[in-house]
Design a protein around this nucleic acid. Structure first.
Lengths: 239, 239
DNA sequence: CGTTGGGTTGACAATTGTCAATGGCCGTGG
DNA sequence: CCACGGCCATTGACAATTGTCAACCCAACG
């Protein structure tokens, strides 16, 4: 905490922690990751990491901060497709000349680096594959959320998902986590309006389901909430 | 059309046609595919190809018929995550012991086969990678549809997507295609109720946007409809 | 201090869902 | 051949959820 080296490594620890949990990484993989992390890139809030339809200049491994994949309709309606949290990887594909399927925008100050290439380190490839499968699982969860849950359930379900994901990188504090976004951003992720999200958040607080103040979201009783919104666990490999 | 051999090959041609379009396949890949296709599996409607949370017994390459990935909430609400059409591949992952992220259910009579393994034929791997990227792009489209489009737009957008996808396997007839599902199935894919889908389909017909009768869906003016629902093209590789 | 971005509130409108009933079509069995 | 049942599509009346618009508050900040 007081040593300079520690200080500089600290903020990126969660991202690496999560990646190294997905598969058993050998020394070569860890070295490659350390090299990658040594060349961080900084982005201010509301900057594009990628633009839909353009070639992907380079993939990103999120080291700190929040970003989101976004799709904008012609008349300006906006839908966030998923959130990108520390440890998440985007733009890594197995085929030539990949085109970004969506734009990616930073929601907060964000640090990224270029992850080690696919196909050079088997252990890392395995981690990538698992990370990718989890991404897909969360996209599927998002579809069910938007298609079949009401506003209250969507909010609860998303908060549980975020808590679960942040836990993997040890970015939670017990039943709380930092939620550095606005209600409008939340609305765009949930397919609702900011006004309605506001009302539902108040209802959730009255019901004792969710308490959000000064950027800290608390889920007093995750299990009870999970039951209430009818939520299943995300699981990607057996055993 | 009259030769026995032709007759038996015919129904699976669309699936192979689409796959071979994604990347340039060498002879080894084509042979491997032909071998795979020679061992078809048949499924009646409403059968599970996979069950959420269970190990994936084997991946499937859809040769004919329609299936869907589905998620069911605790109280029975059902959401179809995407449709699986001839040429689509499911359950092929780069990591060990993959667990099915969702159940897959046949909507019609379906024929599948086990696609050649990943990592043995580079040309085929490239096709798999592109197919997978397209899958992902369609999932993202589904999210935007459910999150930010109204009922009318969702229907139009989905019909355009289905037409576009079926065109890749030459399963369209000009501006028409076979839509072998019920309005309730459509509703479960669109996050709506069957009653509302019914009303919107009638409105679409009155507006001249969509004409659906005896399983044949016609889009009189695809470009106009695309403009009306604010739809973009799906593109996965550059050039 | 004035400005600005986010959050909050109220009144009202639009969209979508619910429930219940009806009719057509088709295959089965008598 | 006809009666029956089942599935699907259709309709109407009504309710619930969510959106829209406009105003206001408040804290942060230059």
């Amino acid at each position: 905490m007081s040593m300079p080296l520690t200080r500089s490594v600290r903020p990126i620890a969660p991202a690496l922690h999560r990646l190294s949990r997905l598969a058993t990484l050998d020394n070569a993989s860890i070295t490659a990751l350390a090299d990658a992390v040594a060349r961080p890139q900084q982005f201010r809030p509301r900057r594009d990491l990628m633009v839909e339809g353009r070639d992907i200049a380079s993939p990103h491994l999120i080291l700190s901060g929040w970003a989101a994949r976004v799709r904008i309709l012609l008349d300006g309606r906006r839908q966030f497709l998923n959130f990108l949290l520390p440890g998440d990887i985007v733009g890594l594909y197995h085929h030539r000349r990949p085109v970004a399927p969506t734009s990616i925008i930073t929601l907060t100050e964000v640090t990224t680096c270029v992850p080690p290439e696919l196909g050079t380190l088997p252990a890392l490839d395995e981690a990538y594959a698992i990370a990718h499968a989890m991404d897909e699982a969360y996209l599927l969860a998002q579809i069910a959320r938007l298609g079949r849950m009401n506003a209250m359930e969507r909010i609860g379900d998303l908060m549980l998902e975020l808590h679960e994901r942040l836990e993997l990188s040890e970015l939670t504090h017990g039943r709380s986590f930092d939620l550095p976004i606005t209600q409008e951003t939340l609305a765009d992720a949930l397919g609702l309006t900011a006004v309605h999200v506001n009302r539902m958040l108040q209802a959730a607080r009255r019901a004792g389901d969710l308490i959000w103040s000064s950027r800290s979201m608390t889920i007093p009783d995750p299990k009870a909430l999970a039951r209430k919104v009818g939520r299943a666990q995300i699981k990607v490999t057996a055993g």
